[in-house]
Amino acid sequence: MGEFEAIRPYADTEVRAVLARLLTDDAFLSILTRYRFPRLAGPCGWLLKPIIAHYLRREIQGVDSVAALQARIEPYVDRSIERASDGITYSGLENLQKGRAYLFLSNHRDIVMDPAFVNYALYHAGHPTPRLAIGDNLLQKPFVSDLMRLNKSFIVHRSISGRREKLAAFQTLSAYINHSIRTEGESIWIAQAEGRAKDGDDRTDSAILKMFHMSRKDEAFASVLRELHLVPIAISYEYDPCDLAKARELYIRASTGSYSKAPGEDDASIALGITGYKGRVHIHFGAEIDTPEDDAKLLAQRIDREILGHYRLFPVHYLAYAMWDERDPQLAVPPADSLFEADELARARSEWQRRLDACPAEQRPWLIMQYATPLRNRYAALYSAT
């Protein structure tokens, strides 16, 4: 495992030492103090941090493996997930075989909650949780890196600028993913493209698929992908807690040609994504692609059809699409009131209007686009399948 030392998750033998380090990390304890006692954290933080550390020490007593840690924190994660949603449903789990390691490839809307919801579904269905790909841009603080690597996350180096260094990093990443699935029997979760689909347009980047093949270039592309047991996942949110922030970013990019993140912006997105209201959430596990195309672009298109074809649409998507200037006249999209009960539609109209009112007028087209695009893509996928 030496070649993967810089990116791999922590092993069971490292859990106790990493937990001990976290309990003495002032930045970590400060974050917990502000979260648990927002009003007292400032004036009384010096007093509260040792109390929180003592409580955590008692809670993790006897935890000496990653599985034990996940089992210990699972009730807290479940509560956090369920508190910020109106229910989670999932489908397609019958497509998965117990004991087989998979390469889960999903659309990407939220930094933390996408893999969290996948873990939630798999854990409660009795499947092992996968190892999770996370960009190094999100690991600015040592304690964040420790927390993520304790939770089976491995690091994707995105901040490297040199071409040669990038190729070497992708080669290592490819080798690690193949080693994890084929040798260690550990599943992998990774997003279908780098960065969140802030405009709601979920598309698989063929470069990601080529990366999986990089470390085994002497073998046929389709053969390598077949052995990774690729499973597309469609993650559908009724509401995106970060939709206004995304609309603002899209507007600024369209107006100026670029966008620079403010310090701490990723941290704010993570916090809002975890705690913000999501409405209903649906996770669909597609059938394994056991006969992948030998061309990365064709395989990407097939994965897109799987993800877009199983995206769960909610009333808000129809309401946004009806307002969208870029509606496709060739798509036979029925009106919302023909698909949903009156009370459900009334609740959706109220929530959608609240979001529109909170969005500056010049940014609203980008807010509308976020919710309208998944509907267009879903109907286009269904249309192309007929």
Rank of each mutant, 00 (worst) to 15 (best):
V15L: 14
D343L: 04
V333E: 00
D12E: 14
N137L: 10
E227Q: 15
V66C: 15
I111D: 05
V18F: 04
I88A: 02
T89I: 00
F117Y: 15
L147E: 02
V224W: 01
D240P: 10
D343Q: 10
Q97Y: 05
L69F: 10
C242S: 14
K98R: 15
P50W: 08
S269P: 04
I188R: 03
I303C: 11
R312Q: 15
E82H: 08
R327T: 01
R149Y: 15
H108L: 12
L228N: 05
M214I: 09
I274V: 15
S338N: 05
A121T: 00
E94T: 08
V231T: 10
E288V: 08
R354N: 12
A372S: 09
A207Y: 00
L22N: 10
A222R: 01
G195K: 02
V144Q: 13
S174I: 01
Y371W: 07
R354M: 13
R302A: 13
Y239W: 15
D357G: 09
E351Q: 11
G257Q: 10
S180W: 03
A254W: 03
D199N: 15
S384K: 02
Y311G: 11
G62A: 14
D205I: 02
V156C: 14
A346W: 00
P128G: 03
H282Y: 06
Y383N: 10
R349D: 14
L382I: 13
A348C: 12
I233R: 07
S80I: 13
P75A: 06
L228C: 06
L23Y: 05
D357W: 05
L47I: 03
R364M: 05
L138P: 03
R376D: 06
R354Y: 05
D304Y: 12
D294Y: 00
G257N: 08
L96S: 00
K261A: 01
L375D: 10
L40M: 09
K297P: 01
V18M: 01
E194W: 02
A300Q: 01
Y10E: 08
T183N: 02
E344A: 12
A168C: 06
N137V: 10
L319P: 12
L225D: 04
G273Q: 06
D328Y: 05
V66A: 15
K152M: 05
A53F: 07
T373I: 06
I289P: 08
D304S: 06
P329W: 07
Q363V: 06
V316I: 12
A342F: 01
I274F: 07
I60S: 07
E194I: 02
E14G: 08
P315Q: 06
A361R: 09
R347T: 01
F37C: 04
G87D: 00
D202P: 00
G264S: 11
D328A: 14
I303A: 10
L228E: 08
A322K: 12
R182V: 00
Q192I: 09
I368S: 12
D146M: 13
R196H: 14
R131C: 08
W352C: 11
S215Q: 01
L339M: 13
L331K: 13
V281S: 02
Y102R: 01
W324Y: 14
I51Q: 07
E238C: 05
G99M: 04
F212P: 04
R216D: 11
P263Y: 13
